[in-house]
Design a protein around this nucleic acid. Structure first.
Length: 422
DNA sequence: TCTGGGGTCCTAGGACCC
DNA sequence: TCTGGGGTCCTAGGACCC
């Protein structure tokens, strides 16, 4: 059996953990640049807000109901996520982090000695005690069914945070009541195809023949179908090395000046290089994209994407930034108000062994890699961006994202640590 | 005025090979 | 008159996830 542990309204729950006065109040957390709602509490849903709403369009609701709005603080959420994971790992040998707010726990071997339902309930209680994050747990023979279980656990108090689907009777009952659009793996397009075919519940889908599913929905649909019928076939084992690494942002203010654009691209390239070194890889290709604001109809629209190969596979910030600037030079058109840009690294491979080049223009690769190590160590100790390329510009540049309601890094920055008065 | 930022996997179709 | 059959690799685009 597999347990899915899902943190309820994770980003909001983290903010509430550090702002106890918000208990029972409507809370939302915004995307980067304070754009859309990405996390929402049930209280905020109840007053008419939805995940995905652009915040400027729902300001009237925010004001009328005193909804508390936070900018996203990914550093804080990542630190809290790690605490939740650590508690799981204390009790369960095989834990797989699936996303920042979800983990799969493999319960094989525990069933003999424990009532796994009560065991998970006890762990959920400990997570709440230690982190103040409420979790919902689904236990089932497959990941897709475990997800179904966790949704039931979340929506019905009676389950006391844990819902186990361990018999065929429970499985059929759950699938008969469940919303087809909430099934993991069924997106908008598959949903409309299934509806068109007259299928309205997950149970009706699960009862179709395998050949019918294969011919209508191909391989991904077949996997979901197998999982719903109790046959595990979705492998989520962590992909250690990413195949592509991307850093992209919308700008706080439109950018038309190539100087500012170069700053932004330099920062995105440096961020990509950091991620690349963190996973001990090198890349062989740098891509850049830039685009105007597609939501504005009054402006000339322009968007473009291009790539260049790196002569030698590298994770060197200087080389990657220089190459990104060369790609930018190919793309940039004056007279456009740019809203968004990004850098993508691809052709990723392990850092060693590297195929060197006979006519390499960089002759001091060893020293350069020591330099990168030094930069990583300094930034690891004193915080990101403590040391960076001058090409990245200053924090005052207008393209930086907005985040007007960001909470402090209470547990990852000594300068912002929580102060308690007694 | 203001509309997110990452990723993965699968498929179809084209180019190319013998 | 009849004009094959099998394979690989690559890429763009779609679908999905959080």
């Amino acid at each position: 059996m597999i347990a899915l542990v899902d943190c309820n309204s994770f980003f909001c729950s983290v903010e509430k953990a550090f702002h106890p006065g918000l208990s029972g109040k409507p809370v939302v957390v915004l995307s980067s640049n304070d754009g859309c709602i990405v996390a929402i509490t049930p209280e905020a849903k109840a007053v008419g807000l939805h995940r995905g709403d652009p915040i400027f369009k729902v300001q009237h609701i925010v004001k009328a109901y005193g909804v508390k709005v936070f900018s996203s603080n990914m550093r804080l959420y990542a630190a809290m996520s790690e605490r939740v994971t650590n508690i799981l790992r204390d009790s369960i040998a095989q834990v797989e982090n699936y996303s920042i707010d979800e983990s799969f726990c493999y319960l094989d071997g525990y069933e003999q000695y424990h009532n796994t339902e009560e065991m998970m309930r006890e762990i959920a209680g400990r997570i709440k005690d230690y982190t103040d994050i409420p979790v919902s747990v689904g236990i089932a023979p497959t990941k897709t069914l475990a997800k179904v279980g966790s949704k039931f656990a979340k929506n019905y108090k009676g389950y006391r945070s844990v819902c186990m689907i361990d018999t065929d009777e429970k499985r059929r009952k759950a699938l008969g009541m469940f919303d087809l659009s909430d099934i993991w793996g069924i997106g908008r397009s598959t949903l409309s195809e299934l509806r068109y075919q007259g299928i309205c519940t997950p149970l009706e889908f699960a009862d179709k023949s395998e050949s019918w599913v294969k011919s209508h929905l191909k391989v991904p649909g077949q996997r979901t179908w197998l999982e719903l019928n109790g046959q595990p076939c979705i492998d989520t084992s962590e992909i250690k090395q990413k195949q592509s690494i991307c850093t992209s942002r919308s700008f706080g203010h439109m950018v038309s000046d190539i100087g500012y654009m170069q700053e932004a691209i330099a920062e995105f390239a440096a961020s990509c290089a950091n991620k690349l070194r963190a996973q001990k890889s090198v890349a062989t290709e740098v891509s850049v994209f830039i685009s105007s604001n597609p939501f504005r109809e009054d402006l000339p629209q322009y968007s473009s994407f291009s790539s260049l190969p790196l002569p030698v596979p590298t994770s060197d910030t200087l080389e990657i930034t220089q190459m990104a600037h060369r790609v930018l030079a190919q793309l940039f058109r004056p007279g456009i108000n740019y809203k968004r840009a990004g850098v993508i690294l691809s052709g990723i491979q392990p850092a060693s062994p590297i195929q060197l080049q006979l006519f390499d223009v960089v002759t001091n690769r060893h020293e350069r890699s020591e330099l990168m190590n030094a930069i990583d160590q300094i930034n690891g100790k004193y915080g990101p961006h403590s040391i960076r390329l001058a090409a990245e510009g200053s924090a005052q540049s207008p393209w930086h994202v907005l985040c007007e309601n960001r909470s402090q890094n209470y547990i990852s920055d000594l300068n912002e640590i929580l102060k308690v008065k007694i």
